[in-house]
Write a protein that binds this DNA or RNA. Structure first.
Length: 392
DNA sequence: ACGCGGGGCTGAGCTGTCAT
DNA sequence: ATGACAGCTCAGCCCCGCGT
């Protein structure tokens, strides 16, 4: 069987996902060297092609598709199993792996997300109290910038990250603030963010201080220059959208009513960011963009902005992420006390994909396709005001 | 024990190239 | 000619090791 490895730009399929048909079913295959992410993404590519009835040479089985992953990673085995379990569309997915002799056989998929051995440190890290250090709230309040927020760092002992509309401008342990933006590239290049920081503050080295006023002054002068760039540039920035969603400035409507913040806004901290999850055994921690709530129901929110890479591919991957975050939260019952403390029922967690409204008419067909793919997994697709994804 | 800094990994932004 | 993917670089996150 011939495999088509050419990039398919109409359907936004990259050259890492080959198309073919296997025993009369629509199928895709990844290369033996495919990364864990490519292996997981191929399942979504396959389902999107099938649900949108993308053209094929010969008719294919309407309710059965085949995913061929020659060498599944441990994480992908878990994640693909979770995704196939969560699928509510009437499609059977056969996942095949390849033996050394070239034969394909059904792959073992799925994993036990409740096994705390996979994330032994997390219960204690999540359970510890996170009082906001006095220095953190004083610095944030001293600048009088609604876009400056502190983010708790979940996996360090006492760390807080300071971000201006999502851009990290420093960190603090509660005793001193260490301010910097980015770093010089190994080839000597310097990003716009870092150039602006150095020009407006004069600090090309990390700048440490325990003095609230000194820190606030440096941050304020950077903020002024950074925001002035908004007059001439209109970049989309995922961190900016995330920052606005986490402080409640961008409403996320599901079923006609907005989700609320995970905890009452104090004007200082963006709670609900970077909740840790895992997608499969042995895999790395995958951090959730935003955790919001509707009453006692937690919502795992994955956001994407229109980047350089294709709209279709990008948004498709977001659907997989939303499902994997949601299912981990539902099943990792060792972490459920964290939710109970906040009056949340983790077993009822929902998932959403959030993107800036698709304004380009050329992208209109992606709205329908992503919505269908979301529906196949009971994920909610939400479009927000595109201006909220702008940096300034 | 703790803090700093380096290294590795993932993902986003930019730009060239190539499918359409 | 157009616009979407590929590939490179950097931002932001982690972990780990070394020095205090």
């Amino acid at each position: 069987m011939k495999i088509n490895w050419n990039a398919d730009k109409r359907n936004s399929i990259g050259s890492s996902t080959g198309r073919l048909s296997v025993e009369g079913t629509r199928a895709v295959e990844v290369r033996p060297s495919a990364t864990s992410k490519q292996q997981i993404a191929a399942l979504l590519d396959l389902l999107d092609l099938h649900l949108s009835n993308a053209q094929v040479a010969q008719p294919v089985h309407p309710r059965e598709v085949t995913l061929r992953v020659p060498v599944p990673s441990s994480e992908a085995r878990g994640a693909i199993g979770t995704l196939v379990d969560a699928l509510v569309a009437p499609v059977q997915v056969n996942v095949l792996e390849q033996a050394v002799n070239g034969d394909w056989s059904l792959a073992a998929t799925g994993w036990d997300a409740s096994n705390v051995e996979e994330y032994p440190g997390w219960p204690a890290l999540l359970q510890r109290p996170r009082p906001v250090p006095d220095l953190v709230s004083r610095v944030v309040r001293a600048t009088s910038l609604s876009s400056l927020r502190a983010y708790p760092m979940l996996s360090t002992s006492a760390g807080w990250s300071l971000r201006l509309e999502g851009l990290e401008i420093g960190r603090t342990d509660g005793k001193r603030v260490r301010l910097k933006v980015g770093k010089d590239g190994k080839l000597g290049d310097r990003s716009l963010q870092r150039r602006t920081w150095i020009e407006s503050t004069g600090h090309s080295e990390p700048f440490q201080t325990g003095d609230v006023e000194v820190a606030a002054k440096a941050i304020a002068s950077f903020a002024k220059s950074w925001q002035a760039l908004g007059q001439t540039r209109a970049d989309h920035d995922e961190h900016a959208l995330e920052s606005r969603i986490l402080r409640g400035a961008t409403p996320i409507d599901v079923g006609g009513k907005p989700l609320s913040l995970i905890q009452q806004d104090d004007g200082v901290v963006n709670w609900g960011s970077q909740f840790p999850t895992k997608w499969g055994p042995g895999g790395k921690a995958r951090y959730l963009d935003a955790l919001l709530r509707d009453g006692s129901t937690p919502w795992a929110v994955e956001m994407k902005v229109q980047g350089g890479a294709g709209v279709g591919q990008y948004y498709r991957h977001a659907v997989a992420q939303a499902v994997l975050y949601r299912e981990f939260i539902r099943r990792a019952f060792v972490l459920h006390p964290w939710f109970e403390m906040r009056g949340l029922d983790a077993t009822r967690c929902q998932g959403a994909v959030v993107v800036p409204r698709l304004t380009n008419p050329r992208h209109a067909h992606w709205r329908a396709r992503v919505t269908d793919l979301c529906a196949a997994f009971e994920v909610t697709f939400v479009e927000v005001d595109p201006s909220h994804a702008l940096r300034h």
